[in-house]
């Protein structure tokens, strides 16, 4: 009888102690507001830096002369599991050599289908494309997610095909 009463009291006190232990953990955090970990996202845009390898979108690199390195070989188009890259190329007559040469007309990228798997960048033989670090892709119209990556008037950089 007495034993069971002692057991009962021990149960109650042990339970209360475990609850107080839990309250100590949360109490520690409310008394240490410096430990707050959340960030105020749009306000911290200036200091927010993504890692170099962050995969946000596919970009076609252009240099200052508006030249890119894409030869239109469609290796990325083949490597893409989701069909998010479409390359429309045309054969253009080169006035200097007099030969017809393949050149990209449109490098179409469907962001809506892209899973950022990085396989296209791996497959590119001329390092023409890269993963961009921009992650703010929200738009109001789905059609805006399809973009042409090569800038108007851009050309293939010389020496890439050699």
């Amino acid at each position: 009888m007495i034993k069971s009463i002692i057991k009962y009291i021990k149960e109650v006190l042990g339970g209360l102690k475990s609850l107080l232990k839990g309250m100590r953990v949360t109490g520690y955090y409310i008394s240490h507001p410096k430990e707050i970990i959340t960030q105020q996202y749009p306000e911290n845009k200036d200091t927010l830096k993504m890692f170099d390898r962050f995969r946000g979108e596919v970009i076609l690199l252009h240099d200052e002369n508006n030249e890119h390195r894409c030869t239109g070989c469609t290796a990325c188009e083949v490597a893409c599991p989701n069909g998010s890259i479409e390359i429309i190329s045309e054969r253009v007559l080169n006035p200097e050599t007099g030969k017809k040469k393949k050149e990209i007309d449109k490098f179409i990228y469907h962001l809506s289908m892209c899973t950022m798997c990085n396989l296209c960048i791996e497959s590119c033989p001329t390092d023409a494309i890269k993963m961009g670090r921009n992650f703010e892709h929200a738009v109001f119209d789905r059609s805006l997610l399809t973009s042409v990556l090569n800038r108007p008037g851009s050309k293939l950089a010389p020496g890439v095909e050699d």
């Binding site: 949360t26 955090y29 409310i30 507001p33 430990e35 707050i36 970990i37 959340t38 105020q40």
Partner: peptide, 13 residues
């Protein structure tokens, strides 16, 4: 606010 501070958040800002 108190809930947020318990959870190391800032709450409505």
């Amino acid at each position: 606010k108190i809930c947020a501070f318990f959870q190391q958040r800032l709450g409505p800002m």
